[in-house]
Each structure stands twice: as structure tokens, then as C-alpha cells.
Design a protein around this nucleic acid. Structure first.
Lengths: 263, 263
DNA sequence: CGGCGGATTTGACTTATATCAACATAATGA
DNA sequence: TCATTATGTTGATATAAGTCAAATCCGCCG
């Protein structure tokens, strides 16, 4: 496989990637969850020369892009977590997505070539990125890549719609259960414990994301703990009764949907 | 320009398009708002042989696709209006989009090749459609088309995120003002009166879309009428004070954002 | 280690919006 | 046309979640 030495030259705090400590996509721990897994039709060795990896981690609070930035890269989370948010006209922040390892960030800018959201690290994180040009209509050899990115875009729409549904008609308790189950499923997909993890976001970020207040988030956690559905201490959470949480979230589980019913 | 006689052969109530009553994209009234406008790089004459037009209108209540249907076409609204919705596990409907003329429907299915939403006509409508194959990764000559659809997908994500913001933190009055302004902008884009139009959707559909109840929608209309911001009778609405509505929706208008302030 | 500041929890109270119920109006169809 | 049904309005009341305020917890830094 051909490996090309890359010198990254952006505002990101990335050091040049050296030949000898370079990891290729095939060796990456989240290979199956990231772009390569979606690129069956594309020559992966070629992809490896396109994808740029950060050699050192990104600090909590570091913005990988801001609203108004020109579209230069698509990012993939290698480790850690990010949030995407937009600012309303009145300046308030609205989080619309949390990004876990193996997930992509920045696709919103394809439309206007300008990012209309900001993305920031919620904790010590590592990322990979692909120059935007490889998705550009004039680029060659990226046919399969473009199709896959279209699928990802489409998937993102589907996910946004699910969130819309949650925000639109669900009660606080249901929204929170839905978030926990959603995180659980995503952690499971990367082969991490799905019933015991550390929430990468603060209570305030959960509240913002779900359209609630911090106090309500706190109270609902207490209530779910009271039911024995979860154990929570700070950001460490254990999902003790996933079927009950799924039921709360409106996800059909048992044959008798009333048997776990809680007012 | 080459025009090809097309026989449409689906579950849609479309009659064969005859040569002599066929309209091509260049002649279409919403040409500037639809796919052709986004396809500067693509040979439009070729597109005209791809796009299929309905010769008769679609009745209110007709579904152009349902959840679970395989992905066969991308649709463009020629006249009328549609809504897209998903059903929750418990069976309730959640509307996430209204589609006005010149807008596309069905892009959500690119990810899984199966529609995960349903689309239904809100009134007597006409549509065009493009077979999905022309976006398929194996298709030739659709490079520009694919790039444009990617942009549309990206745009849709941006729009969904705006709606998310609305649902998440806005009050009922603000949500409704935002919807009215949004419709106004979209009508303006198709060169229709932007301050006087007929709402294509029912009060119940507005309520569902905004995460409110029918009663609240009705009451907020009355309140906005009381302020003199709108005139409304049934589905006919006049936006009498667009700056005030924009201000309510949180869109910055004047230099002194407090001067229109209403509790 | 100890203290400072931000994050979280908890309680008391308020309020926006939902719910329930009755009525009015508009659309539909024989 | 009128009867019938769907859709929209209005009022009274209930409640989920927000607001305000105080207490507690926790991480961080000298």
C-alpha cells in the first residue's frame, strides 16, 4: 500500500504526519465504522493517501470549524466526542448533534461551501479528515466516495428527523430515554460497552440538545434512577434496564407494551 | 432539443405523456426553482429526456410514496403542496417538512434505498420525477447531477437543523411566526405574493409540525391577529407586519431590536 | 491541602401550553 | 338545498416544565 507523507497546513494544531508513526485506515481501530467501511468500491490504498490524520489529540473546547468558515475538509472522529451547533440570530446556541468515534462532521457545508454550524471537541479527541476537493464534482476517481457521502447525508437527514420527532412531541422523560438509548446503540456499534459509559456532554448540553432546562435534565435523571432504570454519578452512567428505557423512548420492545408502563 | 415520448408505468396515477402536450424543463414555470436551475453543468436537453412529468394533477390525499417503499424516483413539486411525515413506533404521525413548488421530495431514501418517510399531497398538485438510477453510482453522465443532489441534501440538513432550533427553544408564538416567515420567503422565491397566500396545510398539520396542539395554533393566530401582525380567515392569510413577525421569529430586523418588543 | 468557581442538585413557585369540553364554522355529498 | 361531518374556535382547568433561589458537589490551581 502506498503511503504518502503529508504535511498539514491549516489552523488546526496538527503536526506533520511522519511516515514511521503513520497509521493507515486498515489498521485504524474504528476502521469498520468510518469512511473505509462505506467505500467498498473505492481503492482503499488510494484513500489512505487522501485521508489526513492528526498525530496529537485535540483539546476540549477546540473548534475544528466555525460558522462562516469555508468548506475545506470532512472530518471523522477517531476518538473522543464533538458537538455541532448553530447560533440563532439572538446569539443563543442550539446543539443539533453529538459526534462519537467513527462518525463524520462537516457535511452541512456541501450546500453552500460555507459551514453554517460550528463543531467543537467535548473532550480530548482525535480526528481524521478528507480534503473537500475529493468530493468536488470536478474531481476524478471519487465516484464511489461521492455516492457514499450522499448516503451519509441522507442518513443524517433521517437522524435529524428522528430528533425532530423527539423534540416535537415527546415528554422530557421520553426525550432523555431516547437520548440514552441512542448513545447506547452508537457505542455498541463501535464495540464499546453499551450499558456503561461516560457521557461526553454536560447537563447543560443535554438540556440544550433536547430543548429542556438543566434543572429538568437533572430531575429526570433522578427520576430514572428512582425507577432503577439507570445508575448515574456525574457523567458516568449505567443503563440498568434498557428495555424499560426503550419503552419510555417509544421503541417497541415486548409483546405487551403495557407491562412496563410508567405514568 | 430532443423530446422523447415517455410512458410512465408506476402506481402513480399518471397518464402517458404525449409529444404534443409535453412541456420541457426550459418552458416550465418554475424552471428557475427546480432541478434545471441547479444543473448548470449538465446538458439540460439530456435532463429533459430523463425527467418525467405528470400530465394530470394528483388529488389531495394521494401518497406519492410510503414508508418502506423502495427508492425509485426523486420528485419535484410543480404545483400544489405536499407534506413529508414519519410514523413513530406508537403510530403517531410527525410531519417534518412541507414541500412547495420547485422543491424536491424523497431524498431521504438515498441512504437505505427504502423510503423512511411518507409523502402526501395537501391539495391538488402536479409533480415531476427523476428515476433514481440517474443518481446511482454506476450511472454515467450524471456527475453534475449527483453533485447538485448532494448540495440539496446538505441544504435539507441545514433546514432540518433550523426547524430543530425552532422546536427546541422557541415559544409557540415564535414558532408560528417563524413558520409564516419561512413560507413567505419560499413563496417569494417562486415569484408569488409573499405577504398574502393560502396556507396549504390544516391547523392540525401546523400544530403537529411545530410540536403544538391545534388549540394553541388557533389561539396564537388570534393573538397575532390581535396585534395586527396578520389577517387570517380560514386558510387565507395576509402578513401585515412582516418585520414584526421576523422579530418574533428571532430574525434580526431593525437596529434597535427592542423597539418592536412584545411580551 | 484548601479554597475558589463552575456545574449540578434540589426545593418552592410560576407559567406556558396541554387537556377537556362546548360551540361555531366550513366543507361535503345526497 | 339541507343535512352531515370534518375542521376550527373559544373557554375553563390541569399539568409539565420553566424560573428563581439556595445548597451541594466537584475539579482545578496555587
Amino acid at each position: 500500500m502506498l503511503l504518502i507523507e503529508l504535511y498539514l497546513t491549516t489552523n488546526l494544531d496538527l503536526t506533520p504526519v511522519k511516515k514511521n508513526n503513520q497509521i493507515n485506515c486498515n489498521d485504524c481501530g474504528i476502521h469498520d465504522l468510518c469512511l473505509p467501511a462505506l467505500l467498498a468500491d473505492v481503492d482503499i490504498s488510494n484513500l489512505d493517501s487522501i485521508i489526513q490524520r492528526s498525530s496529537r489529540s485535540i483539546n476540549k473546547g477546540f473548534h475544528i470549524f466555525n460558522t462562516g468558515d469555508s468548506f475545506q475538509y470532512i472530518y471523522a472522529v477517531r476518538s473522543g466526542a464533538f458537538k455541532s451547533y448553530v447560533n440563532s440570530y439572538s446569539g443563543e446556541e442550539q446543539i443539533f448533534s453529538f459526534h462519537l468515534p467513527g462518525e463524520l462532521i462537516g457535511l452541512d457545508a456541501i450546500y453552500s461551501n460555507i459551514h453554517c454550524s460550528s463543531a467543537v471537541a467535548l473532550e480530548e479527541s482525535q480526528i481524521c479528515r478528507i480534503p473537500y476537493e475529493f468530493l468536488d464534482e470536478n474531481s476524478v476517481g471519487s465516484e464511489g466516495l461521492k455516492s457514499q457521502v450522499m448516503k451519509l447525508l441522507s442518513k443524517e437527514i433521517t437522524e435529524d428527523q428522528q430528533l425532530l420527532m423527539q423534540l416535537g412531541q415527546m415528554k422530557a422523560k421520553e426525550k432523555m430515554a431516547a437520548l440514552l438509548i441512542n448513545l447506547s446503540i452508537r457505542y455498541e456499534a463501535r464495540n464499546l460497552p453499551h450499558d456503561l459509559f461516560t457521557l461526553p456532554m454536560s447537563r447543560g448540553e443535554i438540556a440544550n440538545y433536547l430543548g429542556l432546562t438543566i434543572e429538568t435534565v437533572s430531575r429526570v435523571f433522578r427520576e430514572l434512577k428512582g425507577y432503577g432504570f439507570i445508575k448515574i454519578k456525574g457523567k458516568k452512567i449505567v443503563l440498568k434496564d434498557i428495555p424499560a428505557l426503550k419503552h419510555l423512548a417509544g421503541i417497541f420492545v415486548s409483546n405487551n407494551p403495557n407491562e412496563n408502563a410508567i405514568k
